[in-house]
């Protein structure tokens, strides 16, 4: 079983369109959406949710205001400006600022700060027309998407083992921070979808630094390549000189948005021409994966 993670560094390059196309092309795969901040894959794959699970992560300080003596110890020890003075001289915790470090809980002389678990979102086990899917929804203003990402991957792996699937296809988050790190560590292949813009190239370099840092096997494809053929050429050369694999390019096409509006993958709704480009990328990726 192999796990492929699709990421992009820069957002909006077409990561989810590529992921859903891969889902259409794969034969025996489990799907996972690790872009838990802004999950979109379900808009195309239309999963039927089978199991809903709560995502609990860390704790949150809560002051029992009516018992607060107003001594200010919590105010002094909190490094996150989460302690707010109220009109009556007592204090409360601003949940959006609370880091869950528990220091105020420990030092409150009256021991009236509670430390309940923090409910940070939900994750789902679902069924789609292309197989099982694991996805999640991070609560609004919730933190710690890195661990939710790990959880989604772990569950996808469990289901893939149970179903003896050949492949796990993961839609990853943008950026280079904790959710991305959590989605690529230990994966068999990372596919970076970029675009031939200076921002795209800039972010690609940062992303490739990250995948190199974590020793991930990295494959690159360019979306909307004909917006700037010269930049596309630069990207190809850069990728080849870095020892990663360039696996194809897709032209600028209204077919991609059209598919999205229809709730379909480009493979399901696109013209033969656009499909050919995506199939080439898929085949290139597979031939590299089979090599080991």
């Amino acid at each position: 079983m192999k796990e492929i993670v699709i990421i992009s560094g820069k957002g909006g390059t077409g990561k989810t369109s590529i992921t859903s196309s891969f889902a259409s092309l794969a034969e025996n795969a489990v799907l996972a959406d690790c872009d838990v901040d802004a999950a979109d894959l379900h808009l195309i794959l239309d999963p039927e949710v089978k199991v809903v699970n709560d995502f609990i992560s860390g704790n949150l300080a809560v002051i029992k205001s009516d018992e607060c003596l107003g001594c200010e110890v919590c105010l002094d020890v909190c490094k996150f400006d989460a302690v707010v003075r109220q009109g009556d001289g007592s204090f409360k915790i601003d949940a959006n600022s609370c880091e869950g470090c528990g220091v105020c809980v420990e030092f409150c002389p009256a021991s009236i700060i509670e430390f309940p678990q923090r409910h940070c979102g939900q994750w789902f086990e679902s069924q789609t027309r292309y197989g099982a899917m694991v996805h999640a929804k991070l609560g609004i203003a919730a933190e710690n998407s890195g661990r939710l990402v790990s959880m989604v991957r772990q569950e996808a792996k469990r289901i893939a083992e149970e179903q003896k699937a050949d492949l796990i296809i993961v839609d990853g988050p943008p950026g280079t921070g904790c959710p991305v790190i959590a989605s690529i560590t230990g994966a068999d292949a990372v596919v970076v979808v970029t675009e031939p813009t200076l921002s795209g190239l800039h972010d690609l370099k940062r992303t490739m630094k990250l995948t190199a840092h974590f020793g991930s096997k990295t494959f690159i494809c360019v979306n909307k390549w004909d917006i700037n053929p010269q930049n596309t050429g630069d990207i190809e050369r850069f990728v080849e000189s870095s020892g990663c694999q360039f696996i194809g390019k897709i032209p600028y096409s209204k077919e991609v948005t059209k598919a999205q509006i229809e709730g379909k993958s480009v493979i399901e709704s696109g013209t033969e021409e656009i499909k050919t480009h995506i199939i080439t990328i898929w085949e290139n990726l597979n031939s590299h994966l089979l090599k080991g």
């Binding site: 901040d37 802004a38 979109d40």
Partner: peptide, 28 residues
């Protein structure tokens, strides 16, 4: 701001007088 709705976004918008949300006319 960074994309998303989690901690980096909260830190970025904190103290703002107004927030402009940029979007596209698509399902995503």
């Amino acid at each position: 701001c960074p994309p998303g709705t989690s901690c980096p976004l909260l830190e970025s918008v904190k103290g703002s007088d107004f927030v402009i949300l940029v979007t596209e006319p698509t399902p995503f």
